[in-house]
């Protein structure tokens, strides 16, 4: 038997359903990451999960992003499109202070040594290492990226808008 795997994308996704009979639908915070990305401005990092201080953010990547850095590891998973991630090792003086949570948007390209780059496509996961600045560029059309990170200054929470209630 030949199987057909259903994947989602910015242009083509089908949302499931929440049929709650004896609870509050909001407790399940049900959303669809492609829908969230499709309604977001480029590079807005919108939380789709929150577990105390930990979040998963989704962003639409269109063109070239600002530079970001964090004091802890983050991870990016490409859910649609094709992305290049450039890395710069931050000078100690420019590093995000230890203990600061979440990604920080840098005002400009940072000083430091070039570490290299990763080109990531559908289903690829990349390490965004602590102490490194990174910039994402969409190759071709817009891409969708999930970030495994902590809630921080640039995390956007708009649960009422994105969740079934």
């Amino acid at each position: 038997m030949a199987y057909h795997t259903q994947l989602g994308s910015l242009k083509n996704y089908t949302k499931g359903s929440l049929d709650i009979v004896n609870d509050d639908k909001k407790h399940y915070a049900f959303s669809n990451l492609f829908e969230v990305a499709s309604k977001s401005k480029p590079f807005e990092r919108v939380a789709v999960t929150k577990n105390l201080e930990y979040v998963v953010e989704v962003a639409k990547i269109e063109g070239v992003s600002p530079w970001y850095a964090a004091a802890h590891d983050e991870f990016a998973v490409v859910m649609d499109g094709d992305v290049t991630i450039n890395f710069i090792k931050l000078d100690p003086a420019a590093a995000v202070p230890s203990g600061k949570q979440g990604a920080t948007k840098l005002a400009a390209a940072p000083n430091g040594q070039k570490m290299g780059y990763v080109r990531a496509k559908l289903g690829n996961q990349a390490l965004l290492p602590a102490g490194a600045a990174y910039q994402l560029t969409a190759n071709g059309g817009p891409a969708v990226v999930l970030f495994q990170t902590l809630a921080g200054d640039i995390t956007i929470e708009r649960w009422k808008e994105i969740c079934i209630s």
Partner: peptide
């Protein structure tokens, strides 16, 4: 019973 949830590709649920 509290309910039933159908999750499709891209869906996120607590």
């Amino acid at each position: 019973p509290r309910g039933r949830i159908v999750m499709k590709a891209g869906d996120v649920c607590a």
